[in-house]
Amino acid sequence: MTSGLSGTAGELLFAVRGAGVRYDGVVALEGCDLEITAGERVAVIGPSGAGKSTLIALLNGMVAPTDGTVTALGCDLARAPARTARKVRRQIGTIYQHFDLVEELRVVHNVNAGRLGAWPFWRAALSLVRPSGVGEVRGALERVGIPEKLDARTSTLSGGQKQRVAVAKVLVQQPRAILADEPIASLDPRLGGEVIDLLTEISADLGTTLVTSLHDVTMALGRFERVVALRAGRIEFDRPPGAVSSGDIEDLYAAVEPAS
């Protein structure tokens, strides 16, 4: 069950109440309750297929709950009018496992893609010809450590560099919350550690809320202040890392009986 266990008391950013998600009758999540407040750094763990990605997609409204409700920044994204939903989403930056960058574009455009929500169409279109706001883009790329890649074609970057571009993209977006769906699953452990460090640093520096789903339990326990564990679509536990025992983890990853 949820509680205000985390240290920072603040505004309620995400509220998941009794939420379930089914795809054509197959249960991905059910009966989830979760509250996340401003400034928290939350890791979501669990075995493959537990519903981690679906939970992240519920938070940014890309998936609508089949049962229950989800509000983000006070708004029910799945039901709100498109314009309102768009405004709220501008406050939420999401990073994905596969970076989800456009390979054919130069890095500067992929970084700018983070703030397209705030630009009118003509400005976005013109920017493809002559990049606008290059100063901020360069600043963000410096922050993630690859300023020299500003003009590079994205397809020429390595995996680690691409994930840094994805982080820079969220930086220029200046969101109130950063969601990350398995951000390091495609990276080797050293690079993955660097990216997680970068995300937690940014979150700490800017006071941005961070919700990350992770395969790597050590990383989750070592670098986050709250751990939410999912198993077969249900929240198994939700506590600070200090309160998670090795038995909890063993149970969590034990073989699941095939569900319905």
Binding site: M62, R89, R90, H109, A113, L116, F121, A124, A125
Partner: peptide, 19 residues
């Protein structure tokens, strides 16, 4: 994926399509 990622950060559809 890149398109839905852009929508997820509040980008209008036409702009998201363009990028």
């Amino acid at each position: 994926r890149a398109y839905t990622a852009a929508l997820a950060s509040g980008t209008p559809r036409l702009t998201a399509l363009l990028y």
